[in-house]
Design a protein around this nucleic acid. Structure first.
Length: 423
RNA sequence: GGAGACGUGUCCGAGUGGUUGAAGGAGCACGCCUGGAAAGUGUGUAUACCCCAAAAGGGUAUCGCGAGUUCGAAUCUCGCCGUCUCCGCCA
């Protein structure tokens, strides 16, 4: 959520920058400015009315003490009359505030200046590539066939237990999952991230805090009996740890990491995009989150990007880093890098990580602030990134490392898997 | 899940309808004191929004959250959330 002061004071600039994000509701900005003006004038009026009423109440109190009952009665009537106006104004203020919030929540974050123009994936800018695209032997298979061949993942069984998109990992397949999770967590910890194990169900306040609600309500599984949501990413509970918190400036950056399963309804997905591990309803991911001072958040974004790239290098996977264009970025992000690995049998790039700086967009919803000395609290910046999402990593590992006699495990993972070959 | 008790500021803790944003204490910050420290002592110590070009200053709201009663609520009523104790159940 953008800060109302920012919109109020820099309306032209906001409109201009939103255009890059392909935001079509520019008239919303006008409505916001107008609703805000109404809200403020109403509050001014209401506050002064309340001040009068408070003063009268105080006088009545003094009269009651000194026994001037009759005079107090007069004042009571006067105060009762004020209350009628007060009630109407209060309702108007409530309406204006609700309306303002409803509108503000519709406005996406402003993209950073370096974000390229464009609305399609083709407009994303490749800023880095690494590794050779492997030449596979004759008869190489896509990961879903390999998973069946070596009995690593049972998609059919998942359908029986739950439904499509909930695979069952077995044997070395399950072990590989565990190995990757541990490897990612160890690396994040070594990089200074504090590991946390958050709940994987969250309440509506948390969903709102990171921007999943109300914008993407349909993307989350909703446990209606208890009104809780299954998290689509650990970003939600981890970032919400800092909801309504004022941290000391010297404690920044705050670095947290965590492993959680993630749940996404993925309504509307179909075809080759969802084949095998490409898109699941439940998947595992290690997430890194930072709370940072506004002056340093872009430097931090680059560090996080480097960190994720380091993981992919160590896993010996060919990858590229994209700087997303305005139209392809998420609602809440100011700047996003996507990391994609090349899946050799499918001959396509698969997104395995998204690293973003949200600037103060999430903080504003979260009321996440930092304080410098004795100054007024100011909104902190939040950042997060996948480090990493497992299924597509597994897909690429299986496909790229397949050899006639089995699938080779990258060296860094062997201590975690306990085997160097799947056969 | 059932019964009961409770929920006050960074912390402890007073406060059952009338200048209470909230006594007192601790902690913290700054100053005095000291060779230095402790002790002592003085001052300060929430957040949001509104008015004001800004600062200064003023106003409103906030004692778990929300609604209500009242001229006036931390104090009374209702709902919700949470904590504790006992019972039940259980990994």
């Amino acid at each position: 959520m953008l800060q109302i002061q920012v919109i109020r004071e820099n309306k032209e600039e906001v409109v201009r920058r939103l255009a890059k994000k392909n935001f079509k509701g520019l008239e919303i900005i006008d409505q916001i400015v107008q609703t805000d003006a109404d809200r403020r004038s109403t509050q001014t009026e209401l506050d002064s009315l309340k001040a009068d009423a408070n003063a009268i109440a105080k006088q009545i109190g003094e009269m009651m003490k000194s026994g001037k009952k009759a005079e107090a009665e007069d004042l009571k009537n006067k105060s009762t009359a004020l209350k009628e106006t007060e009630k109407a104004l209060q309702e108007r203020l409530n309406t204006a505030e609700a309306e303002l919030e409803k509108l503000l929540v519709l406005v996406p974050n402003l993209p950073a200046d370096v974000v390229p123009e464009g609305r399609l994936p083709e407009d994303n800018k490749t800023v880095f590539t690494h590794g050779e695209i492997p030449a596979l032997y004759e008869g190489a298979q896509p990961h879903w066939d390999l998973a069946a061949k070596y009995d690593l993942i049972d998609f059919e069984l998942g359908v029986k237990l739950t439904g499509a998109g909930f695979p069952v990992y077995k044997g070395k397949g399950a072990r590989l999952q565990r190995a990757l999770i541990n490897f990612f967590l160890d690396r994040a910890t070594a990089a200074g991230y504090l590991e946390v194990q958050p709940p994987i169900l969250v309440n509506a306040d948390s969903g709102f805090g990171t921007g999943q609600l109300p914008d993407k309500e349909g993307q989350m599984y909703h446990v209606t009996v208890d009104d809780l949501y299954l998290i689509p990413t650990a970003e939600v509970p981890i970032t919400n740890i800092y909801r309504d918190v004022i941290v000391k400036a010297e404690d920044l950056p705050i670095k947290n990491c965590g492993y959680t399963p993630c749940f996404r309804r993925e309504a509307g997905s179909y075809g080759k995009d969802v084949r095998g591990l490409n898109r699941l309803h439940q998947f595992d991911k290690v997430e890194i989150v930072q709370i940072q001072h506004p002056d340093k958040s872009y430097q931090t974004l680059e560090e996080m990007r480097e960190f994720v790239a380091g993981l992919l290098k160590d896993l010996e996977l060919p990858f590229r880093t994209l700087l997303l264009c305005g139209g392809d970025m998420s609602f809440a992000s100011a700047q996003t890098y996507d990391m994609e690995v090349f899946s050799a049998a499918q001959q396509r790039w698969l997104e395995v990580s998204s690293v973003s700086n949200f600037e103060a967009f999430q903080s504003n919803r979260l009321k996440l602030r930092y304080r410098e000395g004795s100054e007024k609290p100011r909104l902190a910046h939040t950042l997060n990134g996948s480090a990493l999402a497992l299924p597509r990593i597994v897909a690429a590992l299986l496909e790229n490392n397949q050899e006639p006699d089995g699938i080779r495990i990258p060296k860094v993972l062997v201590p975690y898997t306990g085997f160097d070959k799947i056969n």
